[in-house]
Every structure is written in structure tokens, then in C-alpha cells.
Amino acid sequence: MKKYASFFRIRFINGLQYRAAAYAGIFTQFAWGFMTLLMFWAFYKSESSSFPMSFSQLSSYIWLQQALLALFMAWFFENEIFETITSGNIAYELCRPTDTYYMWFVRNVAVRLSKVVLRSMPILLVCVFLPSPFGITLPISSKAAFLFILSVLFGFLIMVAFNMLIYISAFYTISPMGIRILAVSLTELLSGAIIPLPFLPDGLRKVIELLPFASMQNTPFLIYTGFLTGTEVINKIILQIIWVIGLFVLGKCLMKNALKKVVVQGG
């Protein structure tokens, strides 16, 4: 266990080194969130009755999305890992007394977390002071806040577990790039990254909400903004837990299978 902890520390500190990148990133994200809100505002001004949530709820959603982007961004992959698989260097990984799945999982978590730490605080801090309804509202109760944090944790784990599946697919296919792009576009749409899921037509939405993507960032953000209430919240969190376990187990099995093949064929 300790070796994973020190591995985590190294990756985390490494991530913190990129100062200029962090500043630029914060600026970029502000601009992005700002423009996105303006777009929705234009729609809102045209027909506020068709809006599925209040505008301040939407603002909180969008700003949370930006602040926690590093946790949930679908397009983030470490090329190093792909290269390790395609070049056959995976053999070195197997020589180490560590479980490759856990190593890569921890690595992903560490890098994303270090990025989030650098960016989320400044963004959230400023957003609290933005004029409503453009700013971010405080959570309605401490219970909601707690459930929110819990949900973010689960959503994050789902994202990383899904990431792992994409990495593992590189063992099974000659074209990891193709799978990547497919997975990224699918994830973006179905997780609410392009437009929040409540904006989707009702019938379609009910189906999408059962998929793991909806349980990534959409669920915690809706909990925070108070869009989901009461038992709905509990149900959604349970669904998250199911997906975490499901994707995790699937990933481990596929990895074990793939590594076995590597050992037999020699990489």
C-alpha cells in the first residue's frame, strides 16, 4: 500500500510543477465558462419557459463543470501509457512487484487531482462573487454539500475506471487512437459535458441516465444545484456505486486477461 502512496505523491507533486500552465488553464476555463453561459443566456432570453432549470442552477452547473474539469474531462489520456502498450515496454511493468491496474489507476487519479487542486480553488472563489444569476450559489444545506462531495468522489472513480477501460482496449486493438476518439466524443455527449443532460429530450434522457456516463459529472452537479431532491439523490448515488464497482471489476478482468496474453506471446 505504501508504494502506491509514494507513487501518488511523486505524480501529484510533478503535476503541481506546471505553474504557467495552471494560470493559463484557469484563464481559459473562465473564458470558456463565461462564453457557455452567454450562449445559454441567449436561449434563456428568447424563451425562458423552455428552460428545464432555473438560470442560477445552470450557472452553478457550468461553473462546477469548469472548476472540476480536470476530474471529469474525457479527452485526457497519458500517451505514455498507450506507448508502453504498443511498444511492448509493458514487459517492464510486469517485472515490477506491483499490480499494473492499480498503478495506472492511482496514476490517473493523482494527475487529475493535482490539476484540479491548482485550478478549482481560484475559479470557485471568484465565481462566488459573480453577480447572480451568473455566479455560483452556495449549497442549500450541509447535508446537500456532503452528498455532493460523496457523489463527486464516486463520479470521479467512474471516470477513471472508464479511462482504464480505454487504456486496456489498446491491448485488444491495433488502433487505440480510433477507440480514444470514439470514446471521447461519446462520453462528452452522454455525460452532459456538451450540454447538461436536463436539456436533452425527456424520452432519450431517461435511457441515457442509466448509462455510466450520466453518473460521472451530471449526477453530482445536479445534486449540488438542488435539481435532484430527496430519494432521487439517494437512488442516483446508489447507481453511481453500482457503476464504480461494475467498471472496476470489468477493468480488472480485462487487464488480467490481456496481461496473460502478453506473457504467453512475449509482448
Binding site: 505523491r9 507533486i13 503541481l16 510543477q17 505553474r19 495552471a22 491548482l118
Partner: peptide, 12 residues
Amino acid sequence: RNAGFKEALTAM
């Protein structure tokens, strides 16, 4: 570039 957690934060 320095190693260590504290140095990393001051480098910010």
C-alpha cells in the same frame, strides 16, 4: 525546478 511539496507550491 525543485523537488518536494513545499518547493513546488512556492514555485507557483
